Each structure stands twice: as C-alpha cells, then as structure tokens.
Simulated assay, not measured.
Amino acid sequence: MTALVLIDLTVHDLPAMTHYEGSVIALARRFGGKPLVKELHPEIIEGQWSPTWLVVLEFPNRQAVRDFYDAPDYQPLKAMRQTAATSNGLIVVGE
C-alpha cells in the first residue's frame, strides 16, 4: 500500500531549507519517494491547524519511508532541516 508523508514546517532559515529541499528529494527518490505537494500558502477550511509550509511525499509503503528516514545519508539532512525549521510529520497509508 502507498504511504504518504505529510510534513508541516515553519521555516526559520529559507536558504538552508532550500538547500535541504534540493538534497532530500534526490535521496527520497532512492527509496521510491516522490514529492506530490509543496504548498507555501495552504488554505485552511476547518479547524485550528495552520501550517505555513506543507509538504506531501509519496512512498511505495511504510517500510520505504522508515528506510529513508533512518538512512545514514539522511541524518545530516535531518539535522539541517531541524535547524532550519520547526516541523511536524506523520505517515499515513492508503488503500
């Protein structure tokens, strides 16, 4: 089943985040990931959620997401993202 990763970011360092984005997409592709959404101005239709930068990535399955997230090559990129932005992320699995 397809797994989607939803990430809500508040970016504090745009140049660093831009560098992260360019590097992380190529790495995600090695694990079957592909970007579906990068929305800088999401439209809120209900509730209190107020993401400022929303990203959705698609992976073949949940294990591919975990393999990507735990990959040694991703760890320095993850540290870069955590310095450049505050984020929330989750995995959802489709049918």
Results as ranks from 00 to 15, higher is better:
2 T>L: 09
26 A>K: 10
60 P>L: 14
60 P>N: 11
14 L>I: 11
85 A>M: 10
93 V>K: 04
16 A>Y: 05
26 A>D: 03
29 R>M: 06
66 R>M: 15
78 K>A: 13
25 I>R: 14
88 N>T: 10
33 G>K: 01
36 L>R: 10
37 V>H: 03
93 V>W: 07
39 E>N: 15
58 E>Q: 15
88 N>Y: 08
42 P>L: 06
68 F>N: 03
59 F>N: 05
87 S>W: 09
91 I>M: 06
1 M>A: 14
61 N>C: 13
61 N>Q: 09
4 L>S: 03
67 D>Q: 07
72 P>K: 05
53 W>N: 13
55 V>Y: 10
33 G>C: 07
5 V>N: 07
9 L>F: 07
92 V>F: 11
58 E>Y: 09
72 P>W: 04
94 G>N: 11
34 K>M: 03
86 T>Y: 02
91 I>A: 05
80 M>R: 07
11 V>S: 04
54 L>I: 01
16 A>I: 01
59 F>C: 03
41 H>M: 12
93 V>H: 06
15 P>Q: 07
14 L>F: 10
1 M>S: 13
67 D>N: 10
41 H>F: 08
57 L>I: 09
59 F>P: 01
93 V>T: 15
37 V>S: 04
25 I>G: 11
65 V>F: 15
7 I>Q: 11
78 K>H: 11
22 G>A: 10
56 V>G: 02
16 A>P: 01
89 G>A: 15
88 N>C: 02
91 I>V: 15
29 R>N: 05
8 D>C: 04
74 Y>D: 05
36 L>C: 00
87 S>C: 04
81 R>S: 03
93 V>E: 15
49 W>G: 12
33 G>P: 03
70 D>H: 13
93 V>A: 08
12 H>C: 00
17 M>Y: 15
5 V>K: 04
50 S>D: 13
76 P>D: 06
39 E>I: 05
63 Q>N: 13
1 M>I: 04
1 M>W: 01
80 M>D: 09
6 L>R: 08
61 N>L: 10
33 G>M: 03
35 P>S: 09
92 V>C: 11
28 A>W: 04
21 E>A: 14
69 Y>R: 10
26 A>H: 05
51 P>M: 05
4 L>Q: 09
91 I>W: 01
73 D>L: 12
65 V>S: 09
78 K>Q: 13
93 V>I: 12
45 I>L: 14
87 S>V: 07
31 F>C: 06
31 F>I: 01
60 P>R: 15
43 E>V: 15
19 H>Y: 01
35 P>G: 12
57 L>M: 14
81 R>K: 13
40 L>M: 06
70 D>K: 09
70 D>A: 13
86 T>S: 15
92 V>P: 06
66 R>G: 01
31 F>K: 08
7 I>A: 14
55 V>K: 12
42 P>E: 08
80 M>I: 00
31 F>Q: 03
90 L>S: 07
17 M>W: 12
28 A>E: 03
65 V>C: 14
67 D>F: 05
22 G>T: 03
34 K>E: 01
38 K>C: 02
60 P>D: 03
42 P>C: 09
51 P>K: 03
66 R>P: 00
7 I>G: 12
9 L>N: 13
34 K>R: 15
87 S>Y: 13
95 E>P: 14
14 L>C: 00
42 P>Q: 10
13 D>Q: 08
5 V>L: 12
70 D>W: 04
12 H>G: 05
62 R>H: 14
32 G>R: 11
39 E>H: 10
94 G>F: 06
91 I>S: 02
7 I>K: 06
92 V>M: 15
